[in-house]
């Protein structure tokens, strides 16, 4: 049997979703409520999740055996809270420095391999002899695109004279490649946003949500259209007889 909490969950799901999407009409109080609640709720949820992780995986095991590395890490973690204490604010910087420093150290060393060496190696491709015409064509496209885009970013040589002119032509190809890439990226962003929207609409169209969707959607729509019409009437110039 559905409890009052189940009903409240259903209501909040539909209400919150429609409040956020009401922004597509205009900035309004429903949208403000939706986004502020989302941000506040998410931060609270993240805090609780992390505390829960710490309790289960760090604090509880220490009840039987103290791990001094974990104790030191927890103490450094507490330094973050000195940000709110003007007198000892500098202590917060130690926590920040350790976080940033270790983060960069951890990521940078391996990024060179994954983001540079492996990527460069995968561009050293045979331009013919892959076995298929399509394979040859793909490799040519990759190599030409990489070289032309890199040429586009050479700004130290003027595009004139016997050396500069060919560089200018290659640079133009690079510009085309970049523009096509941006187009593909833009298309993907649209696809991503539509996927999110469709997933949300699917949730709203679940049998248990449909009635609420219709009621809340109508109420919000009436409010938004009503206020818009009222605003237009207010700013419309008065017509006076000649």
């Amino acid at each position: 049997m559905a409890t009052i909490w189940d009903d409240l969950t259903l209501f909040l799901t539909v209400w919150g979703t429609l409040c956020v999407y009401s922004y597509t009409f205009k900035d309004n109080p429903f949208w403000k409520w939706g986004t502020n609640t989302l941000v506040g709720g998410y931060i609270a949820y993240s805090a609780i999740s992390n505390i829960d992780y710490m309790a289960k995986n760090v604090i509880n095991p220490m009840m039987t055996k103290v791990n001094w590395v974990h104790v030191a890490a927890i103490l450094v973690g507490f330094l973050w809270y000195f940000r709110f204490w003007k007198k000892y604010y500098y202590l917060y910087r130690y926590a920040l420095a350790i976080s940033v420093g270790s983060g960069i150290g951890i990521t940078l060393a391996k990024s060179v391999s994954s983001n540079i060496i492996k990527q460069v190696a995968s561009t050293m491709l045979p331009l013919y002899g892959t076995g298929t015409l399509r394979g040859d064509f793909d490799n040519i496209v990759i190599v030409v695109s990489v070289l032309s885009v890199m040429t586009y970013f050479i700004f130290t040589i003027a595009h004139e004279g016997p050396v500069g002119k060919p560089i200018g032509w290659i640079s133009k190809v690079g510009r085309w490649v970049l523009v096509i890439t941006f187009g593909i990226d833009f298309g993907n962003v649209i696809a991503a946003r539509m996927s999110l929207f469709i997933g949300t609409v699917k949730t709203l169209m679940l049998p248990q949500h449909q009635t609420l969707f219709a009621i809340i959607g109508t109420v919000i729509m009436i409010y938004l259209v009503g206020t818009e019409l009222a605003k237009r009437r207010k700013v419309a110039p008065e017509i006076t007889a000649p």
Binding site: I190, A191, M194, S195, F197, I198, G199, V201, K202
Partner: peptide
């Protein structure tokens, strides 16, 4: 279920 909406929206 979603992919038809996805295609038509595009």
């Amino acid at each position: 279920i979603n992919i038809t909406a996805f295609s038509s929206a595009h």
